[in-house]
Amino acid sequence: MEKFSLNGSAKTPTIHFDGDTGVLEFSGRSIPENSVEFFAPLNEWLEVYQNHPKGETIVDMKLEYFNTSSSKCILDFFKRLEKINGHSTTVRINWYFEKDDEDMAEAGEDYGAIVSLPFEIIEVDEI
């Protein structure tokens, strides 16, 4: 399957989603004015992927910071994953946060409380 690849900018994250390995990585910052428009291609890609997903889908979230508009889009994306979880793939989220960045750790816990997906909150020295 084709890979979904988006290089980050000052306002948008780098996103790599490899359909052959089932690994999706988000990194950088997500502060676009129009988050809905920004996330649309990723959601479309997920719709294709979910027809023939890998046995395990791993999502690595390594965000530096994000705006509230993106937070809603990230939740929408997790909810899409929640729907496919347990059907043809097992979804796992790794939520990374930089040492001392309690806000980012809390954000991960908040998502973990809202969606029923296995969430791991992982502390790292640097993102």
């Binding site: 129009n34 809905v36 509230t68 508009s69 937070s71 809603k72 939740l75 809390e106 908040d110 809202i114």
Partner: peptide, 26 residues
Amino acid sequence: LRGLYQMKLANDPRTDKGTAGLGLID
């Protein structure tokens, strides 16, 4: 504040401007 953020994030639809309505809480 955290509880309110979580509740609104989970339940509120987007505003007519496409924003999340979470700015001031954040």
